[in-house]
Structure formats: C-alpha cells, structure tokens
Nucleic acid binder design. Sequence first.
RNA 1: CGGGGCGUAGCUCAGCUUGGUUAGAGCGUCGCGUUUGGGACGCGAAGGCCGCACGUUCGAAUCGUGUCGCCCCGACCA
Length: 486
Amino acid sequence: MSETLAAGAVKEIPPKTADLSAWYTAACLKAELVSYSPVRGCVVLRPYGFGLWENLQKHLDERFKATGHENAYFPLLIPESLLIREAEHVEGFAPEVAWVTQGGSEELTERLAVRPTSEAIIGTMYAQWVESYRDLPILINQWANVVRWEKATRPFLRTMEFLWQEGHTAHASADEAREETLKILELYRDFAENVAAVPVYYGRKSSSERFPGAVETFSIEALMPDGKALQSGTSHDLGQNFAKAYGIKFVDVDQTIKHAYTTSWGVSWRMLGGLIMVHGDDRGLRIPPKMAPLEAVLVPIVRSNDDRAIDACVQLGNELREAGFRVRVDARDAQPGWKYSEWDLRGVPVRIELGPRDVDAQAAVLARRDRGKGDPGQRQSVAYAQIPGVLHALLDDIQRSLFAEAKSFLDAHTFTTSDRDEFVELCRTRAGMVDIAWCERPQCEAQVKAETTATSRVLRPLGETGLTCVACGEPAKTKAYFAQSY
RNA sequence: CGGGGCGUAGCUCAGCUUGGUUAGAGCGUCGCGUUUGGGACGCGAAGGCCGCACGUUCGAAUCGUGUCGCCCCGACCA
C-alpha cells in the first residue's frame, strides 16, 4: 500500500501566486511538515511539523494558565448512549463519526464513538463532579486528537484525525459563561495576531454556522491569499443545553438546584495551515519567529584547506543556544546554496552564514528569510559580540513585519459595500472579506450562498440604525463579513 | 458523494493517439577527482515486473473493465 501512496504524492512546489492549493500541499510535504499515512485522509506530523505544533501548544498553554485554566485528559472512546444525549449535537456530528463495533473477537453490545469532540464525555464527568456553586467554575482544557470522517482532506486544514486543544468550562451563571466565551475569543485573537502573525476578524457566527448544540458561537477568521476565509478558532457559549443533556446540576447560593452554564472552545492544527498559506512565498514557507521550530540556522562556508568556519559555527551555535535561541548548525557536506534554498523552503526566519572571510573578521552574515533575495536589507555582516542582540532585534522585526504584511493584505482585501450587485460580484470573484449591513436571516444567507458560494464569516455590532440588508433589503440587524471559505 | 485531471527510476516528467527488440531524459543517489559566499564540474556506476487486478491480443506502459491512491473544483464540515 505504501508504494502506491508514494506515487505522484510529492511534487515540486508550483508558484504560490499561480495556484495556492497546489502550492500549499506541495509546500507542506516538501518542507517535511507532514507525510501522508497509509490511512486515507490522515497525515503523519513529522518532527519539523511537530516543532510548529509544540510552539502553538506552548503559547496557548501559557495563555490558558494565565487565565486560570488547567489541563486534563478524557477518553478517546465515547459510548453511543452518551453521545446521543444532546439532540442537535448528535445530529450535527452524526455524518462524520467513526464507530468501534468490535473489541478483540467480541462484538460490542454498545458501539463506541471515536470522539469527534468531547462535550459528551466531559459533560458526563462534570455532572459527577459538580454538587454546589462552590464547585464552579470548572476551567479545564485538554490537548487531544479527534476523528471526523471527512470526505475531502488536505494537510492541517481538513484531516480525518487532527490534533487540537478543546477547553470545556462550567459556570454558575449565564453571564459568567458568556464572559468566559468572549475571554477565550480574545485569547485566540491575541495568539493568532501576536504569535502566528495572522490578522483575523472576530465575532459571532450566524445561526447556520453555529456549533451544533451551542447557544452562540464566536470565531476568529483569517483571510487566505486566494481570497477564501479560514475559520481558525472557535469559542462556544453552550448555555444550559449540554448541562441539561448531561445532568450538570448544582445547588446555588439561593438553595435552589440549577443547571450549570457551559462553554467549549478549540484551536486545531488548522491554524498551522493558515499560517503557512498566509506567510509563504514562491520559495516556500515563511514562519513567524515565535512559531518557528528553529529561529536561525547556521551555515558554515567551507573552502578546501579551510574548514575553520565549522568550528566557528558550532561555537556560535552553542553561545546562541545558551542565550535561549532555537538554532541549528547545518554542517552537512553540501553546497551552501543548496542549504540556503532548503532552509528557505522550511521557513527558518534567519540564516547565519559564516565563512573564512567572516572568521578572519570575527563576524557573520545574518540573512532574513522574509525579504526577497535582491533586497538590500536582507543580509548584514555582524561582529560576533553583537550577534545575540542583533538576532533578537531581527527576530522581533521579522515577527512584526510578517504581521504587518498580512494585515495590509487583509485590509486591502476587505470591502465595504451597500450595493447588492457589487456585493454579489465581490463574493463571487472571491475578492476577500465583504463587509455589509445584514438582516441575519438564514434564508437570506442560503440565498447568498446559492448565488455566490459565499457565507457569513463573522457578525459584528452594527453602528448605525435604520439600515437595510445589502443582500435582501430587509431591515439590517448586524454588520457581517461575507466570504467564501475553507 | 458528483465533475475534471493524474499514477512510468528517489524527484520532475517524456513515451500511450496509431500495441511490436532489452522502457527513456533531466535532476538526485553512489564511487573517484577537482570544487564550495545563492541549488558546482568531469569521468564512471547503480536504480523501474510502467499503482494494482482482470480482460482483449501471437504480443500491453500503450487498448478495455474494475479497483486503490493522489491533485483540482463542487457539496459537506473546523
């Protein structure tokens, strides 16, 4: 089976501007982020890709801890009887649930779902843990894999099995649950923009885009270079729906028994796919320094009879590592130009070139990946003693400049219109995010989708009153960003 | 699941229309030598039952059917 998988799987990377999808898949494979697995629709996360994932985990975990959340772990397998308790929830996920029907040689009397998400099992446990308002809130996050039986798959963006974190909280009041939901939305926005350097719009989801079983869903939405939006993180206010389904009850301060209010929220490795598409260029990946598995790679230039650069690189590499940088010395016996291209492809933010000339001058050349080859600001010679400081500043600047570049793309591809024809045309041509006054009616959204394949991405408060819906002419209730999406 | 494309050496592909010795190229790999500041050069070598199965045929990479997988576009979804 594996030999059939290899055939035709890995291609040369086509220009990003010509075909984003083809570029994306090839880049993920060639940069050794992922490989295809023998199971259709699943990918193997290779060490370099896992490095990206680890940085995502690190930064999100820091933020979760800072807001009082703790990590825990719940089982992979969920009995059918538990999964089906919340009606909307099970209806929403039914088409994509994988089932275990046999254990060893024994047919199971009750089949087990491989979790598509963990509300069911976690809600069941919370019901056992909560007795009193004193037990609330429960603020738990889990890092886990989930399985959804997808029809069409693509590395990171949609795979049958994927890694994510899912937070599940329970609260004593509706206000507190809503506050938690919005706090996490802001946490995700902050992470996306300040760590992944991916600018996003955030807000409420329309009813048709809502999580099955939620009272209200919020999300962050990034814009890909082809004009399609990518939902990159979701935060759900579940109200009392799941508490009622799973029996999460508590005695409140007023001595009455009440159902808790719960939330759930998640970010998956899909975020990595967004980061790759947003920042990559024709030479491959460009990874923002805070997410980069390697912040810098050191390439020694070796001349015949002069390999002093290798020792110099090893020493400089050790010093930088001690100073807290993530670096690697690439001392492989290969052409420097070949190495440059390879590390460019993998998106390492800074390359440090060190050859005999530099050894003589006690300096090294720092080259930044985010700028083009011909850019005069791309390379600079820096004396040994100054390197940690310059590297630090350089990484900061790269982080900022990648965000700025992506932000100006988002701004340039966000359109506001009050004209229906223009709205339809912008949606249809996949121009970007199209901002309109909207009635928020599901029928209207369905009509827009039928006409343009675009849907509402996020809803924001409407500043003015008395406006009419740009799509249908009914009274407008909200401001909405429409776009086609992944 | 629907439409389109593809599967030949590690990679990118040619060959297929019109079936015919031993299936090709470039790159990569290996060996030796010269090289090394943005994908080096010379010489030599290895490497493929043409995705898989069945069928048509004297003969199949080439034609037919099926199947698996990959890519793109829809539908569905994070």
